[in-house]
């Protein structure tokens, strides 16, 4: 069993937790992920590692409440346990030797982008950061990014915080103004990463994307997380989750991510109804 040692709400839909998992904390590196189950009959879901404390033996996860499992996880509190927490899985993000990087995060993806930005900063790399959210209410980790970024742009769709617009707006401006990045690292919704790649492509800046497809075991056994990368089938769990953004077939990945949309919608409604009934009693 794995104990929850800290829980904090970052915004109405995003929660941070620290989980006691000494083996994982000892081995984890930025860019890797874990798989957890919330209860004995629960599904296995992958979540990217958002930080770790090797001394305390804890791993930080930051998740958005999007379905029945993340809702159930969010109902757990400090001191509660979850039955399964396995990892670290996947390859770490390659940060060695980079001198100047633009990190582009969207929504809850910023939670995963932060440890990478922090690691780059620690290694003496110049870090430029763009983070984007739907609105001010959903903005997370602005201070933390500011602390490790040499240049920071905060974007919201509605302009309620930072500047109005999408993340590719400042990225495109910076590239056009002649910023020479060794690499762009982007983490967020598939459609956002697709457009970050499209923005970077004319400038030829290598762009690494972090993929988070549907997964079960996370160890290379099921093949559910497969992606087409440069015309080849790759498994995100063992070959990734980071890939060369220029080679990813994003349209296919977006289609595959919607495979269980009907099931998920039904589960969410069931879950909400259960709660409504419970609250009415």
């Amino acid at each position: 069993m794995y104990r929850i040692t800290e829980k904090r709400s970052l915004n109405p839909t995003v929660t941070l937790m620290e989980i006691e998992a000494p083996y994982v904390a000892a081995a984890a590196r930025p860019g890797q992920f874990i798989i957890l189950r919330v209860d004995e009959n629960g599904e296995r879901i992958p979540l990217t590692v958002a930080g770790y404390d090797r001394e305390k033996g804890t791993v930080r996860i930051i998740f958005q409440i999007v379905g029945a499992t993340t809702a159930a996880l969010n109902r757990k509190n400090v001191g509660d346990t979850i039955p399964d927490f396995a990892g670290p899985l996947g390859k770490p993000t390659e940060v060695e030797g980079l001198k100047k990087v633009c990190v582009v995060g969207g929504g809850v993806g910023c939670a995963i982008a932060l440890p990478i930005a922090e690691e780059l900063h620690r290694l003496g790399c110049e870090v430029h950061t763009v983070i984007g959210f739907r609105s001010k209410d959903l903005l997370i980790l602005e201070k933390e990014f500011a602390a490790v970024s040499d240049r920071l742009a905060v974007m919201t769709d509605d302009g309620s915080a930072g500047r109005q617009g999408v993340v590719t707006l400042p990225l495109g401006e910076w590239l056009a103004a002649g910023e020479n990045y060794d690499e762009i690292i982007t983490i967020g919704p598939l459609v956002m990463m697709k457009f970050v790649v499209a923005t970077a492509r004319p400038f030829g800046v290598p762009t690494v994307v972090s993929m988070n497809p549907i997964m079960i075991d996370g160890t290379g056994m099921c093949g559910g997380c497969r992606l087409t990368v440069g015309g080849e089938t790759k498994f995100a769990c063992v070959d990734g989750p980071d890939f060369d953004g220029y080679l990813i077939d994003f349209d296919e990945a977006m289609s595959r991510s919607a495979m269980y949309r009907d099931f998920e919608t039904a589960k969410r409604e069931e879950d909400c109804n259960l709660f409504r009934d419970a609250n009415n009693v």
């Binding site: 009959n41 559910g224 595959r256």
Partner: peptide
Amino acid sequence: GEALKGVYSANEYLTRSNLMGAYREDSATP
């Protein structure tokens, strides 16, 4: 067409049903 929705490896199909119990109506795994 192997990336279409509805194409499984046998490992995934069987793991969903056997290990995760997706054959049960109340399963959390689809």
